[in-house]
Design a protein around this nucleic acid. Structure first.
Length: 113
DNA sequence: AGTTTGACAGTAT
DNA sequence: GATACTGCCAAAC
């Protein structure tokens, strides 16, 4: 089935595949995902792909933060604080800066192959 | 068809 | 160490 799909859509599917493998209580970065997909420096597209998911997916997108540990995509989860609450419920610890403790919860994804 | 924006990251100052 | 600038590429306007 060689269906013609937009490259963005295909990229999105690959992103989803990786994000779904993120273990509970762990977080990763956009750049790490992009690198695992074989698209280094394309971190922006990873975020853009997740932004297109919207609601009704089984993807733990709340476990994806930027390199600084900031929840840059919190706005996509509706009311502010929801993304933080989801992570906190999974045992993720936050710094006083409101950032995720990357040194403790960073998890590096692998290629979905 | 050109410009702007975006759930980022790396390098330079 | 913090701030500024640039690179990347696609979707939206």
């Amino acid at each position: 089935m060689t269906e013609s799909v937009s490259s963005a859509k295909r990229f999105q599917q690959k992103v989803i595949a990786v994000v779904r493998t993120i273990p509970c209580g762990k977080v990763t970065t956009y750049g790490a995902i992009a690198l695992a997909l074989g698209a280094p420096r394309q971190a922006r597209r990873v975020g853009n792909a997740l932004a297109g998911l919207g609601t009704g997916h089984d993807v733990p997108a709340h476990r994806v933060v930027n390199r600084s540990g900031v929840l840059t995509g919190a706005h996509a989860f509706g009311p502010p604080g929801v993304m933080q609450a989801l992570l906190d419920a999974e045992g993720v610890h936050f710094l006083e800066d409101g950032r995720v403790d990357m040194a403790q919860h960073f998890w590096e994804p692998h290629s979905p192959s």
